[in-house]
């Protein structure tokens, strides 16, 4: 079982995205890359970063990032480790998570607001990856 935000986990997540036909349809025009950030809390000492490039309904590439200045993503989605755990367990709805500031999304909001179904499906894809927290 891959550990959250390990390269193995990223590879499995990309597989889940790329085999999801509904995601492919709903994001068919999407062009934009993300940096996902786990912020440290009581259970995590150092931040973790994953870069995913999403393009026309597919994840083109994804990798673990050690230094966030190495990448220049269009969007950044960040939250504490405890929040990520709840998100992946389905205890937190991602939009509620953003409204209640458990997560922060940086980037062009108007663009994201056009792809709400794709965003929902991206989170659902994480549930297909058995994850060791």
């Amino acid at each position: 079982m891959p550990k959250l935000f390990s390269q193995e986990w990223v590879d499995e997540y990309i597989k889940a995205i790329n085999s999801n036909e509904e995601y492919e349809k709903s994001a068919k025009d999407w062009e934009g890359d993300f940096l996902f950030v786990i912020e440290p809390d009581e259970e995590l000492e150092e931040p973790k970063y994953v870069y995913i490039d999403l393009y026309h309904g597919k994840a083109r590439k994804g990798f673990v990032v050690s230094d966030p200045s190495e990448v220049n993503p269009e969007f950044e989605f960040r939250g504490k480790f405890s929040s990520w755990k709840k998100l992946l367990d389905g205890e937190i709805d991602p939009i509620k998570g953003l409204i209640t500031r458990k997560f922060v999304l940086k980037g062009n909001m108007a663009k994201v607001m056009k792809y709400t179904k794709a965003a929902k499906l991206l989170v659902e894809c994480t549930k297909q990856v058995e994850t060791e927290m």
């Binding site: 349809k25 056009k114 792809y115 709400t116 179904k117 929902k120 499906l121």
Partner: peptide, 16 residues
């Protein structure tokens, strides 16, 4: 419909 924000708060989103 697939772009509509109401999709987000459906327990299950219907496919196309």
């Amino acid at each position: 419909a697939s772009y509509d924000n109401t999709i987000l708060t459906l327990v299950e989103a219907p496919n196309d």
